[in-house]
Computed example of a mutant assay.
Amino acid sequence: MNYLVVGSGLFGAVFAHELAEHGNNVKIIEKRDHIAGNIYTKVVDGIQVHQYGAHIFHTSNKEVWDYVHQFANFNRFTNSPIANYKGKMYNLPFNMNTFSEMWGVKTPQEAMAKINEQRQEMAGKKPQNLEEQAISLIGRDIYEKLIKGYTEKQWGRKATELPAFIIKRLPVRLVYDNNYFNDDYQGIPIGGYTKMIENMLDHPNIEIELNTDFFDKKDEYLKSYEKVVYTGMIDKFFDYKLGELEYRSLKFETEEKDVNNYQGNAVINYTDAETPYTRVIEHKHFEFGKSDYKDKTIVTREYPADWKRGDEPYYPINNYRNNQLYKEYKKLAEKENDKVIFGGRLGQYKYYNMDQVIAAARKSVQIVLRKNNEKN
Rank of each mutant, 00 (worst) to 15 (best):
M112L: 14
P189N: 07
I358H: 01
M102T: 06
Y67R: 00
E152T: 12
A123Y: 12
A54L: 12
V357Q: 02
K327P: 00
I317T: 00
I188D: 10
N84T: 02
V44F: 03
K227V: 02
L201A: 00
F94E: 03
E101P: 00
Y293T: 04
K371R: 15
I135H: 05
I135N: 05
M1Q: 10
G23T: 12
N75R: 07
L369F: 07
F57P: 13
Y90H: 05
D45E: 11
W103M: 09
G264L: 04
P189I: 06
N372A: 15
A123N: 10
K294V: 02
D33P: 10
E207D: 10
H55N: 10
T59D: 05
A273R: 13
V68T: 01
T98Q: 11
V26F: 05
K114R: 14
E30S: 05
E244T: 15
E336F: 11
F181M: 13
Y180M: 09
D258E: 11
D306L: 12
F288V: 09
E132K: 08
D311G: 07
E30C: 06
Y180K: 07
L146C: 05
H34F: 12
D272H: 06
K145F: 10
F77R: 09
Y230R: 08
N129T: 08
E161W: 06
D66A: 09
T254V: 11
F15M: 15
L146K: 03
I28T: 02
L10E: 03
N182L: 14
T41E: 04
W307F: 14
I197M: 03
D295Y: 08
E220A: 13
E282W: 04
G289K: 04
N205M: 09
N95F: 10
D258F: 09
Q186T: 08
D239N: 15
G310K: 06
H34Y: 13
W307C: 02
T254H: 04
E161F: 04
K284R: 15
K257Q: 10
M89D: 11
V49A: 03
V299Y: 03
P163T: 07
V49Y: 01
A16L: 03
K284L: 14
Y67Q: 00
A273N: 07
A123C: 01
K330D: 13
N261W: 10
Q263D: 09
E101G: 02
N260F: 08
G23N: 11
Q120V: 02
W307D: 03
D338I: 00
E209L: 12
H285E: 09
V64K: 02
N260E: 10
R362H: 02
N373K: 15
L4S: 10
E209I: 13
F214V: 08
E226L: 00
P163N: 08
R169P: 01
Y262F: 13
N260A: 08
I39Y: 03
G7R: 13
I167M: 14
G53L: 07
D33A: 08
Y221V: 02
A333D: 09
T98V: 11
A16S: 15
V172G: 00
I317S: 01
K308I: 12
Y247E: 01
A72R: 03
G37N: 04
K227L: 02
F237Y: 15
P204K: 04
Y143G: 06
N318V: 12
S224Y: 00
W155H: 04
K126C: 01
R169I: 01
Y180N: 08
R169V: 03
I188L: 08
R309H: 12
P81A: 07
D219Q: 13
D295T: 11
Y329V: 06
